[in-house]
Design a protein around this nucleic acid. Sequence first.
DNA 1: TAGCCTCGAGTTCA
DNA 2: CTCGAGGCTA
Length: 692
Amino acid sequence: MDRETAQKRAEELRALLNRHSYNYYVLDRPEITDAAYDRLYHELKAIEEIYPDLISPDSPTRRVGASPLADFAPHMHRQTMLSLSNAFGPDDLRAFDKRAKRVLGLDAEASIEYLCELKIDGLAVSLTYTDGMLAVGATRGNGIAGEDVTPNLKTIRSIPLRLFGKQAGMPSFVEIRGEVFMLRSEFERVNQEQEEAGQPPFANPRNAAAGSIRQKNSAVTASRKLDFFAYAVGEAAGVSFADQASLLEMLAARGFRTNTHRNLCRGIEEAVLYCEEWRSRKDDLPYDTDGMVVKVNAVDLQRDLGATSREPRWAIAYKYPALRANTVIRDIAVQVGRTGSLTPVAIMDPVEVAGATVSRATLHNEDEIRRKDIRIGDTVIIQRAGEVIPEVVEVVSGARTGEERPFIMPEACPVCGSRVERPEGEVVARCVGLSCPAQVKERILHFASRNAMDIEGLGPAQVDQLTTKSLVRDPADLYYLTLEEMLTLDRMAEKSAGNLLRSIEKSKQVTPERLLFALGIRHVGEHVARIVTRHFGSLERVMAATEEELSRVPEIGPSIARSIATFFSDQENRQVIDKLNGAGLVMQGVREAVKESPGFAGKTFVFTGTFETMTREEAEAAARSLGAHASGSVSKKTDCVVAGPGAGSKLEKARSLGVAVLTETQYRAMIEEANQGDGEAGKEVQLALDME
DNA sequence: TAGCCTCGAGTTCA
DNA sequence: CTCGAGGCTA
C-alpha cells in the first residue's frame, strides 16, 4: 500500500471507528458487531505501524496509552471548578429558591425554571478542546489546580477525542466538564481482578474510578471500563447558549454522553417532586448517584446570581444521604484516653455516610475487633449509630484478598512507652504511666469540661500547648498561669488570653460535687460525685472518709470505695488538692429546692432525642427539682420516657416494655402543672450542703 | 450467684 | 449511642 492510499484509508478508518465507538459507548446503539469493529481497529493499527507519522491524536488507537506517565503534571483550571452547597430535604431546596428570588429581585410568587440532573457519584474532570481536538484532560483537584491525566482520560470511550461537527463551526477553545464514573458491575469485576492480583480492593465504584484515572500506566486505565457524562462548559470561545437544557443538547450534539434522567421544572415545588421521585428510583440504575443537582436553567439568571468564592448561587446539590457505606480500613491507630485506656480506631478511606464525610471509627477494644474479625485492609460496611457516631457494622468478607493484617494491641503505650496492662477478666487495655502525656492532657480537658469546672476557651489546642510546654502538669497548675505565660502560646493574644484567665478565675466558684467529678477519679462520674458529696456534706469529709465509710453509702460498693480512698491517700493527689485550695477555690454548696410533686416524686424519668425548647440537661434538672430521678437508660423500673425528635433505641425499648412515653410538649405541660399546684399539694424539701 | 439496673467512659463531624 | 462493669436484689 502506498503512502497516499494508506493516508486516505487511515482517515476513513478513524472516522468509522470513532462513529461506531460513539454509537456503542455514548448512544448504546451499536451498528456493527464487536468483531467487525475489531477488524477495522486492527486494520488501522497495521497502517499506523507502517506509517507512524500518519498517527493523529484523535486516532482510536491512541486510547490505549503506550508509555507510562512519570508523574502527573499539575493543571491550573482556567476557571475554578466550584463545589456545590448541599440540600438535604425539601425545605433546604425551598430556602435556596427563596434566596435566589431575593437576589434576583423577583417577588415570592414568581417561579424560576430549574433543570434537575442526576448527580453521578464519580469524579469531576475538565476536558480542554482546542480547535475541536482533545488537548488536556485534568482532574478537579482542589478546584483551582488538578492533575493532568490526559492519556488516561483518552482511554474512556465515551469521551470524544474530537468534537463532532464541521470544522468551520468548531470552537477554537472550549472546556467541557463532567463526571467520570464506573458501573457497579465493572467495579465488582475490577475488585475481583484486584483480589486475584493480591492488590487491595477499592471501597466503592467512586474510589475505583478515581484510582483508575490516576494510574501511571494508562494501559491499566484502559483495562477498566470507565464512563463519562458531560454536564457543563467552563471557559469557551465562540460557544453560547441560553440555558442549561440547551447546553446539554449542545454537548450531546458534540458527541458527549449526557445523562438522560433530567427534567425541566417550573418552580421549586416541581423540582422537589422530581428530586423526591428519584430518592428510591436511583437504586435501579447500574451506577451510583448521590443526589440530584438543581440548576437555575436560564444562563442570564445564572450570571445575575453569580457565585461565592466556593459555590455558585444558582445551583445546589440535593443529596440522598446513604445510611450505610462501604470503605476500606487502611490502618488501626491506638488512642490513649484519660484513664490510660487504649482504644483502637479505624482509619478509613473517607466516605459519605448520612450527610457527613467519615474517615475514623472507634473499634472499642481488642475483643470487639476479634468478634467482628476486623483486619487492616478489610473492606467494611459502616453506618452512623444514632445518626452521629460512625460504627463498623461488618466486614465484607467477599472482598478479602488474603493480604489483610490482624490488629495486635501494642505492649507499650504508643504515647509514653509505658507498659500496657490488661487485667484478668477486663476488656480494656491500659497504659500504666500516670504521667503519660496523653493521660495528663485528657485529665486536664476533663477537668475543664462543661459539666466539671466549665472553663471556657480551654480546648484541646490550648491544653496540648500548655502541657507540652510543661506550663501545666496537673489541673491545679491552671490557677497559677500568668498572662505572660499564656501569651507564649500560638494563636493566643491579649484578647483570648484575657478571656481564658477570666473563665479560669470564674471557675474558682464551684460546688464540691463538680470538683469531685472534675478530679477524674475512676468510677466517679457525675452521679457518684453527687451522692457522695451529699452524703458527707463536703469535699473535706469525703477526703477524710475511710474505704469502709465510703462503701456504706448507698450505691457505693467496694470498687468505687477503694477507688476514691486510694485516690485521696495518694500524696501527689493530696498536693494537687492543696494547690487548688491555695489558689483560692471557693466551694459553695447548692441550695436546691426540691418540691415533692405528685407526678414526679420518686419516679424515674429517661430523656432521649433532641428537644426544641430546652436542652436535655435542663429537662433533667427540672425533673430532679420536682423530686424525680433522671436516669440514662430505660428499664422496667423506668416510669416515663420523654422523647424528642431523633430518639432511637431508647424509645423503642420504652415501647417494647410498655413504659409511658411523653412528647416534649406534654412534658412541659406536666412541669407547669406541678409548679402551679405546689402550694398545697407539694411539700417542700430543702436540700442544703454545709460548706467550709 | 445470676440477672437486672445504672453509671462511667469513650467517641465523630461540622 | 453503646458497651463494660459496679451495685443491688432475688
